[in-house]
């Protein structure tokens, strides 16, 4: 699914990535570990096509992402450190906007337009079997457990809710590859548990997940492979038995 080879990236004269190679298969959850400044965020920006590498190759599902970035972008969802959400739009409006930007199937949005109109009078229908309610954006909001706050401005959301909405945003076009930058930062125990469960579900559904973290304990239960990024290079790799203790040992 993801195949990155010998990626290099410098900011000015400072090299950040020095030949990083990384691959991931469908259903795999790869954790990119590293201290602050190790190059994790830069790597994720390059993998998501937000930044162009200075050298190397990058392909997503066989598509050369450097040659055809827009084709690759249809397959990539990024949960960035920032939520990439407009605070003055509601959760629903944010997702609707991104759905339109990704050209998500018109009928799905059409259905959701009726959802929006219905909801203006009745806030949110708590009955998931309601004929008009279980479609497109609403289903996604329900999946991240935000359907009850769908029509509140994003600026009123807590950090955990914003993170869940950011995940819904990244999933709006049903990407095959999901990149997550420090997804557990700032989350309380309960939100972190929910996020872990959500990541496991996504992996079980055949999605490929690559996430960065500098924490040893959180989210490792869903990880199938871990790589340590140090000084812009992959310094070590763990294939199985990924526990906080082994990860801590990797750092040392």
């Amino acid at each position: 699914m993801l195949d990155a080879a010998e990626l290099t990236k410098s900011y000015g004269v400072r090299p950040v990535l020095r030949g990083v190679s990384l691959s991931a298969r469908p259903g795999e959850v790869v954790a990119v570990l590293g201290a602050n400044g190790a190059g994790k965020t830069t790597l994720l920006r390059v993998l998501s096509t937000l930044s162009k590498p200075d050298g190397g190759r990058l392909s997503v599902a066989g598509i050369d992402a450097l040659e055809h970035p827009n084709r690759a972008r249809r397959l990539i969802g990024l949960v960035s450190h920032q939520p990439l959400l407009y605070p003055d739009l509601t959760g629903y409006e944010n997702l609707l906007f991104y759905a339109r930007m990704y050209g998500v199937d018109g009928r799905r949005i059409q259905d959701d337009e009726s959802f929006r109109v219905n909801r203006q009078s009745s806030i949110v229908d708590p009955n998931p079997k309601s004929p008009n309610s279980e479609s497109g954006i609403e289903a996604l909001l329900r999946q991240v457990n935000l359907h009850m706050r769908a029509h509140d401005l994003a600026r009123t959301y807590s950090r955990g809710m914003l993170q869940r909405l950011a995940i819904a945003r990244a999933m709006i076009h049903d990407p095959a590859l999901i990149l997550l930058d420090e997804p557990f930062t700032g989350l309380d125990q309960s939100s972190a548990r929910n996020l872990s469960a959500m990541l496991r579900e996504l992996a079980a559904a055949g999605k490929t997940l690559v996430m960065t973290t500098h924490e040893f304990g959180r989210g490792l239960e869903s990880v199938t492979r871990a790589v340590l990024l140090r000084g812009g290079r992959i310094a070590a790799e763990l294939d199985a038995g990924i526990t906080p203790d082994r990860v801590a040992a990797l750092f040392e």
Partner: peptide
């Protein structure tokens, strides 16, 4: 705000 410009740039 919230680096929304990246959200636009991620879109195909």
């Amino acid at each position: 705000t919230n680096q929304c410009i990246d959200g636009l740039l991620l879109a195909p």
